[in-house]
Design a protein around this nucleic acid. Structure first.
Length: 371
DNA sequence: AAATCGGGGGC
DNA sequence: GCCCCAGATTT
């Protein structure tokens, strides 16, 4: 690929463009390793616009690694609620605790130690260490892979076989060792703003003269589309119990099931992201109410009074990776809520303040509208 | 190497 | 509706 003077021109072109055109993002106003780290975790598979409000709120509550390490997990998940990929938050806090215990509260500078932390893989280690500590490590993420694939006219699935490894080698050779952090951000910024998946803006791209895909007219064909798993439709029924004071009942974050049906598509703990949730079961669509009633009678009320009037609410749609879920919520008014250890009883409007997934937020909203 | 984990903005 | 995103972990 590029070497010598051509590489120098290439690097200069991109860095000049980046220093001129980069977006003003909250995490670019600091090199505090903790903030860089937090931003990189939140940005995994998540768009910038979605992250910004979460980033600000999270730092207000947890300004330092120490405060993050000492917080209850539920509080961390509460601030992550709605952002998705919740194991990121669980790993983040576990890593924070390790950093406090083993690294004196400072994000480790050694790549091996960084990679050993939960939630830190090759990309995130390179990103944090280059941006915060100017380590000479090249990042390879979806943006960079697309930029490199177009530059070199690389056909086929970028994540297949050894292709990702080849792309990493390419990224390594292109890295500007004088400014590794800026360089990495510049490559990603180009992919995020100009060298986009569809309709790349080649006319204003600083690298257009270096781009093989551009020369061959392949910018729309590269990179190849990812093959996705076929979508599976799932039906759930959820019970929104409300007492005379407008209070409702939620179940605590369920643990992963060990063996039985771990591979089943309709595994409730997975579908509610192991967060607080309304009593929920998989159902056959046509029998949602009957099956939910039976479940409520045996598992929630344990033979007690189940509430007479059940109101079917507007079905809620939700997606969890390859699963397309329809939740059939039922509003059940009861004189009193059953007391069950571990459950939470609170006003319906306050459900959104808990550590819940978007699925539960949608169900709560549907119920609020009906009241 | 393949499967899995959320959610939303843009088209 | 579909696509894909500043990927990591588990098996």
């Amino acid at each position: 690929m590029l070497t010598g003077p051509a590489l120098a021109r290439f690097q200069k072109s991109l860095l000049a463009w980046f220093r001129e055109s980069q977006r003003d993002l909250p995490w670019r106003r600091t090199r505090d390793p903790y903030r860089v780290w937090l931003s990189e975790i939140m940005l995994q598979q998540t768009r910038v616009a979605a992250v910004i409000p979460y980033y600000e709120r999270f730092l207000e509550r947890f300004p330092t690694v120490k405060e993050l390490a000492e917080a209850p997990e539920d509080e961390v998940l509460r601030l992550w609620s709605g952002l998705g990929y919740y194991s990121r938050a669980r790993n983040l806090q576990n890593a924070a605790r390790q950093i406090v215990e083993r690294h004196g509260g400072e994000f480790p500078r050694a790549p091996g130690q960084a990679l050993a932390l939960p939630g830190i893989g090759a990309y995130t280690a390179a990103a944090i260490l280059s941006i915060a500590y100017q380590a000479k490590m090249a990042v390879l993420d979806g943006n960079v892979a697309r930029v490199l694939a177009r530059l070199g006219a690389v056909r086929g699935d970028l994540r297949a076989n050894g292709r990702w490894l080849e792309l990493q080698k390419t990224a390594d050779t292109l890295l500007d060792e004088e400014a590794p952090g800026d360089w990495n951000e510049a490559m990603m910024e180009l992919g995020a703003t100009l060298c986009t998946p569809r309709s790349p803006q080649c006319l204003i791209c600083p690298l257009t003269g270096f781009c093989e895909a551009r020369k061959k007219g392949l910018t729309e064909e590269i990179p190849a589309k990812r093959v996705k798993r076929e979508r599976v439709e799932i039906a759930l029924a959820a019970l929104v119990l409300v007492d005379a004071r407008g209070k409702t009942l939620l179940l605590p974050p369920p643990q992963k099931r060990e063996q039985a049906g771990a591979g089943e598509a309709a595994d409730v703990p997975t579908l509610v992201s192991r967060m607080w949730h309304f009593p929920t079961i998989p159902v056959r669509r046509e029998a949602a109410k009957v099956e939910l009633r039976k479940f409520a009678q045996t598992s929630i009320f344990r033979g007690g009074k189940c509430g007479s009037e059940w109101q079917a609410l507007k079905p809620v749609r939700h997606a969890v990776t390859f699963r397309a879920i329809t939740i059939y919520p039922f509003l059940a008014r009861a004189a009193g809520l059953p007391r069950i250890a571990g459950t939470k009883i609170l006003p319906l409007e306050e459900v959104s303040e808990l550590a819940i997934s978007s699925l539960t937020r949608k169900v709560a909203r549907a119920a609020e509208k009906a009241i």
